[in-house]
Structures are given as C-alpha cells and as structure tokens.
Amino acid sequence: MIELDTLDRLILREMVRDATQSASAIGRALGLSQPATWRRLQRLRDMGVIKGQRLELDHEKLGFGVSVFLGVKLATKGRVSLEDFERAVSAIPEVQTVEHILGLYDYRLRVVARDISDFERVLRRRIMTLPGVGDVEANVLLSEERRPGPIG
C-alpha cells in the first residue's frame, strides 16, 4: 500500500471530481502553488496511484438509451479458454466492460444498446454466438449514481 498524506488525498478528490482541471486550478482550490501541485500529481502518476484519465461519454445522448448488465457463465463442455472468450467479447463494440468475477457467473458484462430490440440483436447475434457461452442473465439498468469510493 502506498502512503498518502492529507494533501495527496485532497488532490485525488479534486481529480475524481473533475480530471480535466489543471494543476493550477487544483492548487487554487487547495491553497497550493501550481508547481507544488504539479509535482504532487506527477509523483502520484509515477507511483501508479493515478493510472490515467478517461473520457466519460453520455451513452444516452449518443443514441444508446439502454444499458444491460449480463452475467455470463461459460459452458463446461469444450472448455474454451478464458483468454479466447475475453478477446472475442472485447471485440464487440456494444460491450463496454468485461469483468471476470467469482460467483454464480464467470463474467459480468456491461452492454449498451439503442433500445431493447437492439439489445436483443446484440445478445442473439453477437454474445450468444461467442465460443464457450453457457448461461446468461440480463439485468437492465434503470438508473445510476456514480460514487468516487474511498481515497486512502
């Protein structure tokens, strides 16, 4: 575990709130100079605490009004490799996340679609035809609130 001081945690909270902020803006918000803030941000990147910055898209505004979480259990017959399944499912553009999990299912996928009939098309023609797919359970997302999680 990496030791973080109070300023590091405050900087991370600012970055989680809005990762597009400059070191200068973060410094102003926290009462730090731009160079001191920049050095701390660089140190956090170098230590691997900040792994990158991602663009968050509004899927609904892009025409993808349905999000579905799929639990996928691989079939035991034929024993397709996990890597083969992950590579094949990752090639489907509607699949936003692929999580290998422990529990009733082997994988949890987040799939976006234009509507329910579009999701059915993706499910039938793309996901169910993947090598090794056995049982699938779908849960349609009704609403979502993102939480930043604990920092230190």
Rank of each mutant, 00 (worst) to 15 (best):
T6F: 13
T6R: 13
L7M: 06
R9W: 07
L10E: 14
L12A: 01
R13V: 10
E14G: 07
M15Q: 10
V16H: 06
D18K: 01
D18S: 03
T20A: 06
Q21G: 00
I26H: 02
G27S: 00
R28D: 03
R28Q: 07
G31F: 07
S33M: 07
Q34G: 07
P35K: 00
A36S: 13
R39K: 14
L41E: 00
Q42H: 09
Q42S: 12
Q42I: 14
V49Y: 10
V49D: 09
I50F: 14
G52Q: 13
E56A: 07
E56G: 03
D58I: 02
H59M: 08
K61C: 04
K61R: 12
F64M: 10
F64K: 06
F64Q: 03
S67T: 15
S67E: 14
L70F: 15
G71S: 04
V72K: 01
K73G: 00
K73S: 06
T76M: 02
G78V: 05
G78W: 12
G78T: 09
G78H: 06
V80H: 03
V80W: 13
L82H: 12
E83Y: 15
D84Q: 11
R87Q: 10
A88G: 03
A91V: 10
A91K: 07
I92M: 06
V95G: 01
Q96W: 14
V98E: 01
E99D: 09
E99L: 15
E99I: 13
L102F: 15
Y105W: 10
R108T: 08
R110L: 15
V111Q: 00
A113C: 08
D115C: 11
D115A: 06
S117H: 13
S117F: 08
S117R: 09
D118P: 11
D118Q: 04
E120W: 12
I127D: 01
